[in-house]
Every structure is written in structure tokens, then in C-alpha cells.
Nucleic acid binder design. Structure first.
Lengths: 303, 303
DNA sequence: CCTTTATGTTGATTAAATATCACCAAGAGA
DNA sequence: TCTCTTGGTGATATTTAATCAACATAAAGG
């Protein structure tokens, strides 16, 4: 079977994406508002057209094959993009206010930069950004969506998982007279280290072949935002997320040092407390964040 | 109209994307293999469902509206992604060899990095990379696709426009004792400048408010690859494309200095000389490059 | 061990979406 | 003006997709 734009079985792909997300035809059918038989047929048709099995049909349970996973990912991303495209031309979603909230550290680290980009893409949407506490249980009424780090608590509902931090060491170029590009992890320990309350140095060192050891504390700060500020000011080396320091890396305020990046244990989430309907504006914002933060394209994106 | 995954009019969107690309229903119909009436209906349906005009219908000519352009872009990207997804699970496209060619400077600057990423995503596909001359007129037979800079000449056929360089000044941190992040464009002129045969400094300076002036030549090199090497070695400031120095920026070998980036006048293209059929492997490679280089997501992507 | 309740699959049928054909009105160009 | 091309549209035909109902199989409960 030839694969071209005109022969892509779009509806079958959508059905498959939903089925793949649930691994359960009846639930997928419910989401799509059709019967399970219809979904079964669509998935079958897609498998035949591609000439490959997308599900392992062990007994009467579905499991994605390797190829199925790959395709589901691609189709899911594509559908997200189509959704964003449709929303971005919907008059109802533009022109109006969107009230967002986040802990100050998140706002300062990356959310404001994202909001700036979003605003450039959709200048008709006015955004108000409020502060909340990191572990705040409930949100004021006027806040439509909020960003939090770690599983959201209490009555909040996850709209979207945004991204999982990947942290690696960064420092000011002023701290590294030699330019210090491919600095070895071990020689890092000669430099002053900046810690925040997440205490990630031990884990990072372990992941870079520097077995369990005491790390001397040179500077403690509360959160990553202050850690980045401290690193920028040449106080020492800080373990920072790649997204949070991207602009600093771009303009040379900070330099990424060697070693592998390590994934954080928790994710950032976009959450809401609204009972049912979230506005088209908020939906558009969610799609935008998802694309800019989560995706980037599977592998590392360029610059 | 509510916009959700289940209500997206996928087929209508595809028809619209083709129509938008041609701004011509009959040609779009030809590409889709249907009659123009069918396309007309699909586009109409989409406009009604979204509640917005996608085309200006002046007389009997079609022009995209602002919203139409935006949507067409999004839908086109999404369809590319779906195509890549479908290809990536197609047994015929995997397992086999793909012969690629490029001028050495392009290979060294960014193509090898892309091939590395591609190989990680699709380890089944073996790639052979050959050298060609930048202005080579014909390709050896065994080469299936090639990359070139500037409009391809002679019997080559463009498969895809890849990206247009955006160049800005970079230098080794060793050259900038102060860390020199937000260095003013004017103070740049105090540093030694590296030129390649494209002679971009004049244009860049003009675009950064430094009117027409003589720029002293400190070092001339043949192509951008050598320019980047020279900058890396601390010979001076070079105007480099963001993609070509992304890894150097990441690991601190180079630092991006201030000022606006400027678009090059020519693009990089993926071309072929094959009469008709390009292999599914090559198609997959084309989709991959297109996504990683061209898109990135409209605005600047994150690191 | 048998029963119950899930699962996904499939043939026949019905319903809906989509394409076609033929024709129209309107603008472009000679 | 005459001609050619554009896109739009009503009626019709075709193709595609969903439903319904029955079925096979596997897991869970008694």
C-alpha cells in the first residue's frame, strides 16, 4: 500500500488513537460516541491498510504493539495540533480574558516565557497571571487554570501533563575561566554547589558514576528560581531543568556543563477546578503549552 | 460549535489543506483524485462548522484569509506528522539502505547530527552519506536524495524545502572574559570578526542599526563549517546559523551574543534526481528532516 | 465446576456521508 | 462581445461508516 496524503485513513487513525489511549474498545467507543463495533472495524481497516498489527490480541484483551505505540503517539500529536489549529481560528476562543495561576517560582522560571510566546501567537487573548501557593488546596473562583508541580491535590482535575524536568548542571561563564565546556562530572565537585530543597545532587551524581557520597553544601536556596539566579550570579553550579534555563543558555548567562541529564520524579501539570466546561481560550492555551513543552518532537529538538 | 477530538472534520481539513496550498479547487481536486465539486463542498462544510471564512471569494478566485493561512499551516504540519507516523510503521520503509549526499560543510554542520537523531528513531534503516560538490550538476546514480543550499540546479527535483538559516553572532567564551551575555551589537566591532564567502556581516550590521559601513576583515574562511571551527577556537566572532551551532551552544563551546538574528536569502533543500518513485525510506527521512528543521513549532522551540 | 459478566469480532442491515454529473453565474482575457 | 475558466449547487448515485444482534473467548465469582 502506497502512503500519501490522499490515502491517509484519517477517521480510522482517529479511532485508533482513542482506542490506543484506552486499550479498550468499549471505552474508546464511548469517547467517540459510537458503538464498540464501529471502533473495532475502524481499527481493523487501519491495520489492513498499513499491513501491520497495531494491537496484540491476546485473548480478548488489547495491548499495543511496538508499532502501535509509535503510531498512536504520532497520531495523538497530530490530532492535538489539529485541535489547536481549529481553536486558533475559532472566533469564540479569541478575544477575551484567561486567568491563569501558578506558584511564583514556576511563573518566573518558564511560565512567563511561555505566556509571552503564546501572546505573540494569539494577541487577541488577554492573560492575567495570579500567584498561588505551591501546595494550595483550592483555587479562587476566578482562576480558570493553574500550573502545579507534582500530582495535583484535592478537587483539582488534570487537564494535561506538561513536562517532566530534566536537570543537569549549569553555571555562569564567569565561574569557569577556561570556558569549561565538556567539564567532567568529577571535576564539578571542585566548584561550589548550589542546592535547593529538592536535594537533587545526590541522585544526579549517582547517575553520573559518582557513587553515593556526601556532597558538601555551599549554598542553600528555597526553590529552583533562586537557584538559577544564584548560578547566574556566579555563586556556583546548580542543577537546573533545561527548559527553565533555555533563555539563559541562549544568551550566554549560563553554560551547561557535562554529564547526563536526569529526569525528575514529578511532572508539571496544568489543572483546573472548574466543574465541566473549560473555555475555548483555556483549551487553546493547554494545547499550546502541550506542544511547546511536552512534544518538541520526540527526540531532542534543535536549539 | 464545540471543538473536540471527536468532532474534528478530518477529511474536510485535508481537502482544505490541499485547496489552500493551490488556492485552486480544480487543481486541488486533481491532487485528491476527486472532482472540484467535492472539494468545494468539503471546504464549505469546514467553514460552516468552524463558523469562519477560510477563503476570500473575490469573484471566482480564491485567496486565503488570515485565519485560513493559520489553519492551513497547522493542518499541513499535522498531516505531515501523520504521514511520518504511517511510514514509521510500514515494514516496507524500514530495514534497508538509504543513500544520502551533501556538501561536506552541510554534513559537518548539521546533517550528521540530524542523521544521528534519525538513526536513533529508526535504527532499522541504514544510511550511507556521500560527499558532493556544493554546485554539482548531476548526482551519481546510487544517490537517492541530496541536500543542497540554494535553489537546486539542473535536473534535480525539490522534495522539500528544509529551512532558511537565521544567523547571529557567536563566539567562544574564552574570547569574552566578562561572560558577555547581552553584548551590544556596536561593541561587537571591537572584537575580531570572522567572514566566510557569503559576506553576511554588512547585512547583519545594517539590520541591527549599524548603518552601512566598512567592516574590517580579521579572518576569512571558505564556508560556515570552518567559520564555526574558528569561532570555537577563539579566533573571533562569527555569524552562524542557530541550527548549525545548537550543540556548541548547548555545551558551552560557543555563546550567542546579542542582536537580532537575520534570515538568509537562500534555503536548504532536500532534492532528488530519481524520475518518479522515491522509496518509503527516503520519504520517511524527508518527513523527519522537515519536522525537526522546518517546524519545531512555529515560534522558537525550547532549547 | 458451572455461571455470570466482561471482552472483541463479525454478518446483515440501515443510515449517513461523500462524490458525481450536469448545469449555472460570474469574472478574465482576447 | 465571445470564449474560456473559475467556483457554486441541486439531484442523484455511490461509497463509507454505524448499528444491531449474535457469537466466541476469557476472566471472575460462587
Amino acid at each position: 500500500m502506497e502512503i500519501s496524503r490522499r490515502s491517509l485513513p484519517l477517521n480510522a487513525m482517529r479511532a485508533f488513537e482513542v482506542a490506543a489511549r484506552h486499550c479498550h474498545l468499549r471505552r474508546a467507543a464511548a469517547e467517540l460516541g459510537v458503538t464498540h463495533g464501529a471502533v473495532s472495524r475502524q481499527v481493523r481497516q487501519l491495520e489492513e491498510q498499513l499491513g501491520i498489527d497495531l494491537f496484540d490480541r491476546g485473548g480478548n484483551r488489547l495491548t499495543l504493539t511496538q508499532e502501535g505505540k509509535r503510531l498512536a503517539q504520532a497520531v495523538g500529536d497530530a490530532l492535538d495540533q489539529l485541535t489547536e489549529g481549529a481553536l486558533s481560528v475559532d472566533p469564540a476562543s479569541l478575544s477575551g480574558e484567561l486567568v491563569v495561576a501558578a506558584p511564583p517560582s514556576i511563573s518566573a522560571c518558564w511560565l512567563l516565557a511561555m505566556i509571552g510566546d503564546f501572546n505573540r501567537s494569539y494577541p487577541e487573548i488577554e492573560i492575567r497571571l495570579d500567584n498561588i501557593q505551591p501546595m494550595q488546596r483550592e483555587l479562587p473562583n476566578e482562576i480558570e487554570v493553574a500550573v502545579c508541580f507534582g500530582e495535583p491535590i484535592a478537587p483539582k482535575k488534570v487537564i494535561r501533563e506538561l513536562f517532566r524536568e530534566k536537570y543537569g548542571p549549569v553555571a555562569s561563564p564567569a565561574l569557569l575561566p577556561g570556558g569549561g565546556g565538556g567539564l567532567e562530572p568529577s571535576s564539578l565537585l571542585q566548584l561550589p554547589l548550589i542546592h535547593d530543597r529538592h536535594g537533587r545532587w545526590t541522585r544526579w551524581l549517582a547517575n553520573n558514576g559518582l557513587g553515593p557520597r556526601e556532597v558538601s553544601a555551599n549554598l542553600y536556596v528555597q526553590d529552583s528560581y533562586l537557584g538559577i539566579c544564584a548560578a547566574r550570579d556566579g555563586c556556583g553550579v546548580f542543577l537546573a531543568d533545561r527548559i527553565e534555563v533555555s533563555s539563559d543558555l541562549r544568551n550566554g548567562n549560563l553554560i551547561a556543563l557535562g554529564g547526563q541529564t536526569v529526569e525528575a520524579q514529578h511532572s508539571h501539570y496544568l489543572v483546573t477546578e472548574q466543574p465541566e466546561v473549560i473555555s475555548a481560550r483555556a483549551q487553546l492555551f493547554a494545547e499550546y503549552l502541550g506542544r511547546e513543552l511536552g512534544g518538541g518532537g520526540g527526540s531532542d529538538s534543535v536549539l
